[in-house]
Design a protein around this nucleic acid. Sequence first.
DNA 1: TTAATCAACATGAATTTTGTGATTTTGTGA
DNA 2: TCACAAAATCACAAAATTCATGTTGATTAA
Lengths: 256, 256
Amino acid sequence: MPVKREERRQAIMDLLVEARAVDLDALADRFGVSKMTIHRDLDDLEQAGFLRKVRGGATIEAGTRFESDFRIRALQDGDAKGRMARAALELVEPGMTVMINDGSMAALLGASLTEKAPLTVITNNAAVIDRLKDAPRITLIALGGIYNAKFNGFFGVVTEHALSRLRADLAFVSTPALAGIQAFHMDDAVVRAKRAMMRAAERNVLLVNHQRFGRSALHVLADLAEFDAIITDAAPAPEDRAATDRAGIALTIAGE
Amino acid sequence: MPVKREERRQAIMDLLVEARAVDLDALADRFGVSKMTIHRDLDDLEQAGFLRKVRGGATIEAGTRFESDFRIRALQDGDAKGRMARAALELVEPGMTVMINDGSMAALLGASLTEKAPLTVITNNAAVIDRLKDAPRITLIALGGIYNAKFNGFFGVVTEHALSRLRADLAFVSTPALAGIQAFHMDDAVVRAKRAMMRAAERNVLLVNHQRFGRSALHVLADLAEFDAIITDAAPAPEDRAATDRAGIALTIAGE
DNA sequence: TTAATCAACATGAATTTTGTGATTTTGTGA
DNA sequence: TCACAAAATCACAAAATTCATGTTGATTAA
């Protein structure tokens, strides 16, 4: 596997997320490769929609569609996601029945569930289904539904109804927005699937990136009090933290 | 692309399907490669579930689960399958809701449904789900269920229940065995999924390879009279044909 | 005790990634 | 508008990496 190349691109994205813009020459220097190589990196990353090339470097166009694009979220915080997945895994014991919802964070966690086999995994996340299909000692229950390319998962009445007939020990629910004592999501169908999952699980764990604190979206997903635990990757701002404390939920900062 | 290697493995499977068993030394000789290479071929094929390694070679364990494994059938009859898929496509009109069940024949048909878009496709076949996920103008409804690696699809109560809430214009049902006026299948869970699908469809079409006539299996899948049409790839033996005629079903020989 | 299996390492072909220099495009200031 | 330098692009060669295969020798099963 071309680890080197991917690592470099990941690093470019990390720099970009932090600095908003990068300089081509500086990158070539920093990684000890030719400018041409950086050119190709930027071309491919632009092609994939991660950044915008400008003369002499690249920018991320914060505030516009770029920053909020799910593909950036997939690249961003690779490390943070790993830490969160690890913290989430701690809650899983062999033999359990676990639910995993849509989202790239959930996909990562789903894939690493093999470590805790034997398990029964219930999910509407297409990435998880693919990854666990042939995993030994994992009983995979896919929730059907209408395929939604935007969220790479299955949703709709079929999904919700399937969930009404199932029961799990633990559900991992992720959210892109959390403000005050509530979690939010921009899509109606996704909210319904997540809520159905929460109803079907004994215990619910919320996964949320710390940058998502203080944001909201069109639909309320749930009150934080409905969760048994919240896992995030870094301490949120004090005022956000105060809100979760008020809700009385254990907030786990992964990697501490 | 390592064409060479895949060709050799394909050839090994062909020999195996024909002879029931192959000798390792003979294979090394025949293909002009070392025994170690054949060992690796057999290991990987066994891993994939295509064969069973025995001392000095490999067998296919006809009559047991191996012969019925979807992956073996996937290797056979490539051409015949294409013709059947084409014949089946004739019955599909844009705008319809179509159901596709498990099996490699169904997988091929499912993938070619893109030609008739816009369509709504309902399936428990993992191969079809993968292929149609990002197909434009196809609304894909996956039936969830427990993933079964042997049939590369989803089965169980979740599947059946989802089907009880859906309705389609047309269902394509495939069978590995057909004798007299009945179709058969070796697996209970698969039979239930297929039957649920038949109940949910306005019209039902049976897909069956001509070599499958005159065979039976543990479970009855359906009476032929329950189908509106039967598609096969070549004329079956006269006595088998007589039985279908008696059931009064139109038998389409694909490619005529 | 014989043959088969398996693990570990070596080899060479094929693919992928990178670098170089020539050529074209773009931005800037006269 | 023009000239010109910096940046971008292109095409091809070089380097690195991956992958299938072979070899050897230890281990295991018949």
